[in-house]
């Protein structure tokens, strides 16, 4: 045992710094190409359109921290949204529709959590399977129907602009963020999630019921998918089987962009929040420039790959500088 070397947090910090810089650069680019981007009304759209993605991304950060993944959050949202449409169409009762939506999302997450925590089938395969299952269920429930004509109240609770500019769905997101960030950084749960990501056995052998935690975080993610479905329907006022198709990927990208590692153990809610905003900026910017959704997807994929490569190089450097003695 010669010298001690402290594992530095500099790379971790610089990671978030890089993200903030990247965000700033993207904003400036769009602003310069299309100055209308800086108009408050337009700019705050960025926060309006990430409402549903953001909710799910915050929940997914928990899941990915444990070394797990959920590939199918978008289809859970789809299934929940279809259930909303069906309930509203048959009962015209908003409270009931919202309740059913939340229950559906929660059940979707619960089913994932149940399989993952009880059978030890990897989350990758479980959610790959349930993703198609939920998609299939949405189609089976909806048939060829599209549901629309939702009440104005729905729009109010999920898309009102406070003071004329601040989207209420972003406020929901921020409130949730502050709570989850505090739990993540200072709470027993956050600590155990990271511990599980590194070495679940050691956490079990400390007396923690990791099965319950796993079940809990996947179920919670499901609940957030249900909430996201309501926010989404408030924005688009139509439930159809194509909703949420693209979100699986957007949500995962937001989390990974934020620096949470798919290997588990390392992550940050703050990173995820920045990741969410970057995605919002790209989405809004591209739509202002009249680019198609496909260019957006293409770019998002590239950004994800590049960010992973960058982080992996940084991680490698960090490892060399604090190598085990």
């Amino acid at each position: 045992m010669s010298t001690f070397k402290k594992k530095s947090f500099t790379s971790y910090l610089s990671h978030q710094t890089i993200l903030v810089i990247a965000l700033f650069v993207v904003v400036m680019i769009f602003g310069i190409i299309e100055p209308v981007f800086f108009k408050p009304r337009v700019f705050f759209d960025v926060f309006a359109i990430v409402g549903e993605i953001g909710l799910m991304a915050l929940g997914l950060t928990f899941v990915i921290t444990t070394g797990g993944i959920d590939l199918g959050v978008g289809y859970n949202l789809q299934m929940s949204g279809i259930v909303f449409g069906l309930t509203w169409a048959t009962t015209q009762n908003l409270a009931l529709a919202i309740a059913f939506t939340l229950v559906t999302g929660t059940l979707g997450g619960f089913f994932n959590g149940l399989i993952i925590s009880r059978t030890r089938i990897p989350s990758l395969v479980t959610t790959l399977a349930t993703m198609y299952l939920y998609r299939g269920l949405s189609m089976i429930i909806a048939g060829s129907n599209n549901y629309a004509g939702f009440p104005d109240v729905l729009q109010k609770i999920s898309t009102t602009r406070l003071f004329g500019f601040l989207p209420v769905q972003f406020i929901y997101l921020l409130v949730l963020f502050f709570i989850l960030d505090f739990i993540y950084e200072r709470g027993v749960l956050g600590r155990n999630l990271k511990g599980m990501g590194f070495n679940e056995n050691a956490v079990i052998y400390s007396g923690v019921n990791t099965k319950k935690i796993l079940l809990g975080i996947y179920t919670f993610l499901g609940l957030l998918c249900g909430m996201a479905a309501i926010v989404y329907l408030g924005r688009f006022s139509a439930a159809k089987t194509s909703m949420g198709d693209n979100m699986n990927f957007e949500v995962i990208t937001a989390v990974l962009l934020g620096g949470t590692s798919t290997m588990g153990g390392i992550g940050s809610m703050r990173g995820t929040l920045i990741g969410i905003i970057i995605i919002g900026v790209l989405k809004k910017g591209f739509s202002l420039l009249n680019f198609s959704g496909n260019i957006y997807n293409f770019t998002l994929g590239l950004i994800l790959i590049l960010s992973l490569l960058l982080f992996s190089v940084m991680e490698e450097k960090k490892k060399v500088s604090s190598r085990k003695i």
């Binding site: 600590r191 990271k194 511990g195 590194f198 070495n199 056995n201 050691a202 956490v203 079990i204 052998y205 153990g265």
Partner: peptide, 12 residues
Amino acid sequence: TFGLVLEMSVKV
């Protein structure tokens, strides 16, 4: 395998 989360701090 079972005793410690090696990647985390002494305190944790």
